[in-house]
């Protein structure tokens, strides 16, 4: 019975390319009806893991099961039960929206009537009825992403794989897509979501696994992961000068405090469980750095990720700026 609750089970999944280990013995399972988030920086092994789970990459070692049935060596049967939405919209430019959906339905053996009916349902559900007869190449980026998600759902799969669904699209479309994902979840669709937007994962996922350099370094519900930083606080200061000038002195004066980020006049400091704001303010004031703002915040999933993975926030932010679409926040 417990096995039936697990849609996907991955055991010691490993992928090597020409001696390079892209995924190194990962273990996880996805429960029926949940949104499982797979979080990690670029090159962590997220897409390689999806490719192995969906049959687009051979598995070097380990095994994968779909509803208890092993499909490590032959994914065809399992593929019929999966919907896959890649990180780039890859529908056919020359076909219109409806034709694209119908063609995708045909790939899953749906007969003509069945796929036409389902295509119309999805076009309505995704708000694309008016664009149904426009060629895919005429769609905006956000519309393309929506139709690509709809194509992944055409055959009503048991599990939907969403690879970076909101990367590179504007805020409005990203919000619409998140809302669509929430609605799908409410209807009982199991979703495997990879993303490098921590806020997105925090908002959408029930369970999350952090993957770094091909290894899962932590897995649990958002609440479980957040417990790791209980008792810690983050203090965000806006100063009247550049923090970097006093950074070393600060470290020496407050060894129990951890500087998360310090750029120009903005600094984030992780404090111990018990602390007083006054000595910190005094420290800055004495060094001609007036404190304009001091805000105490509880650690977010982003801080948990930083703590767990040991990845420097600055590095993550750099990565975010290279991949984030306009208006996106909270990327890693």
């Amino acid at each position: 019975m417990i096995a039936l609750l697990k849609i996907i089970e991955a055991e010691n999944l490993k992928k090597q390319y020409n001696g390079f280990t892209a995924v190194d013995g990962v273990n996880f399972h996805i429960k029926r009806g949940e949104i499982f988030g797979f979080l990690g920086p670029n090159g962590a092994g997220k897409t390689t893991t999806i490719n192995m789970l969906t049959g687009l990459a051979h598995i070097t070692a380990g095994s994968v099961k779909l509803m208890g049935e092993d499909y490590t060596r032959n994914a065809i049967k399992a593929q019929a039960l999966m919907g896959i939405v890649p990180d780039e919209s890859n529908l056919y430019e020359e076909l219109d929206g409806r034709e694209n959906l119908c063609f995708c339905g045909a790939l899953y053996g749906m007969d003509k009537k069945q796929r036409e009916k389902r295509a119309d349902e999805l076009l309505e559900q995704f708000g694309l009825q008016e664009a149904a007869s426009k060629p895919f190449k005429a769609y905006s980026k956000g519309m393309k992403r929506k139709l690509t998600i709809a194509a992944g759902l055409i055959h009503e799969p048991e599990i939907l794989f969403l690879d970076e669904p909101t990367t590179g699209i504007d805020v409005a479309f990203a919000r619409q897509i998140r809302s669509l994902i929430t609605n799908l979840h409410k209807k009982g669709t199991t979703i495997f979501l990879t993303t490098h937007y921590i806020e997105e994962a925090e908002r959408l996922c029930e369970r999350i696994a952090f993957i770094v350099q091909g290894r899962i370094v932590r897995e649990g519900t958002v609440v479980e992961l957040m417990q790791e930083t209980q008792g810690e606080n983050i203090i965000n200061f806006i100063l009247g000068g550049d923090f970097s000038a006093v950074q070393t002195e600060f470290k020496n004066s407050f060894p129990d405090y951890n500087i998360i980020s310090g750029k120009n006049n903005s600094v984030s400091i992780q404090s111990p469980a018990s602390f007083s704001l006054l000595p910190l303010v005094k420290f800055f004031e004495e060094r001609s750095l007036p404190v304009f703002e001091a805000k105490i915040v509880h650690p977010s999933l982003e801080e948990v990720f930083v703590n767990v993975t040991g990845i420097e926030l600055q590095k993550l932010q750099n990565e975010q700026s290279t991949r984030t679409g306009p208006g996106q926040k909270g990327g890693i």
């Binding site: 065809i76 890859n90 790939l107």
Partner: peptide, 12 residues
């Protein structure tokens, strides 16, 4: 254009 991937993922 990566549309071939879609065919490789089809259960055939």
């Amino acid at each position: 254009s990566r549309s071939f991937e879609r065919l490789l993922l089809a259960p055939i």
